[in-house]
């Protein structure tokens, strides 16, 4: 256990060094993409509010929508972290060899790598919560923030295992980035990235609750921002656990089949 923790921390620091080596690129793209998403969404809703002469829709005021889009944009970043290819590139270019030779758990190493950017984004999210409280009169609460953070972290683990299943498909197909983009856009959409779920027509709304995605994005943010939610902290957390187990089993199955396909590239 201690050894695994060390590996995790080690992978984490290596990745952190990489991030800092290109810090300008990292922060610039983070800030720009978040800002663009929030601003454009805000403008979109502002024009709709103005046109229909209302001050709130489905329980959201414009201020609440700003907070919502801000949180969901960053949380989405936390979940998808370092982009596609974290495992598939190792397979395609044969770097997996290296990790197979190291006496460490490959998964934990990769999870550590995955978490680096996530935690950086998370820290930004936490700092900005203070801003919401002061400027946008958000109704925050310490307990709900803690619960929200825990849920965001477990969401990240859940999504990591889901992506790793797709990434492992690289054992069979050379290029799988398009699958990754697909699952991300589905996750984003069903998690309420583009539009809060309460705006969805009932049929779609009901349907997507059978997928893990609303629990990864939408509900953790509801808790974080202390809004009324139809699911409690413990319910969402157990749903996460359930999906983590499902994805973990799936991933083990794929790994066990796939490893025989691995050619090592260049050996």
């Amino acid at each position: 256990m201690k050894k695994n923790l060390n590996i995790f921390i080690h992978a984490f620091t290596i990745e952190l060094r990489k991030v800092f080596a290109y810090k300008l690129e990292f922060w610039a793209s983070f800030i720009f993409s978040t800002a663009a998403m929030v601003i454009v969404s805000y403008l979109l809703w502002q024009s709709i509010f103005e046109l229909n002469q209302v001050s709130q829709m489905k329980g959201y005021t414009l201020n609440a929508l700003i907070i919502y889009y801000f949180c969901i944009a960053i949380t989405h970043k936390i979940l998808v972290s370092s982009g596609m290819g974290i495992i598939s590139r190792d397979i395609y270019y044969g770097d997996l060899n290296k990790y197979l030779l190291y006496p460490v758990n490959y998964q934990i190493f990769k999870l550590g790598t995955y978490f680096t950017k996530s935690l950086l984004y998370l820290s930004v999210l936490l700092i900005s919560l203070i801003g919401f409280q002061i400027f946008l009169s958000a109704n925050l609460n310490f307990l709900s923030i803690v619960q929200g953070i825990i849920l965001i972290l477990s969401s990240t683990v859940t999504f990591f295992f889901l992506t790793s299943i797709l990434e492992l498909l690289a054992f069979w197909a050379d290029h799988i980035w398009s699958l990754g983009i697909m699952i991300r856009s589905v996750m984003a959409f069903c998690g309420g990235f583009m539009i809060p779920l309460s705006f969805f027509p009932e049929s779609i709304y009901n349907f997507i609750h059978y997928t893990p995605f609303p629990y990864l994005l939408y509900y953790p943010i509801k808790l974080l921002t202390n809004q009324e939610s139809s699911y409690s902290f413990f319910t969402i957390f157990s749903i996460h656990l359930f999906w983590i187990i499902v994805f973990y089993i799936g991933q083990q199955l794929v790994w066990n089949k796939g490893k025989y396909k691995y050619t090592g590239v260049g050996i």
Binding site: Y22, E25, S29, S33, A36, M37, V40, L43, L44
Partner: peptide, 22 residues
């Protein structure tokens, strides 16, 4: 740097995709 600022432009996608009048 390995990738330049490509994610930056990618992040601005909503500006491309939403009607300009907003």
């Amino acid at each position: 740097s390995p990738r330049g600022f490509d994610m930056l432009l990618h992040g601005l996608d909503p500006i491309l995709k939403y009607p300009i009048s907003i």
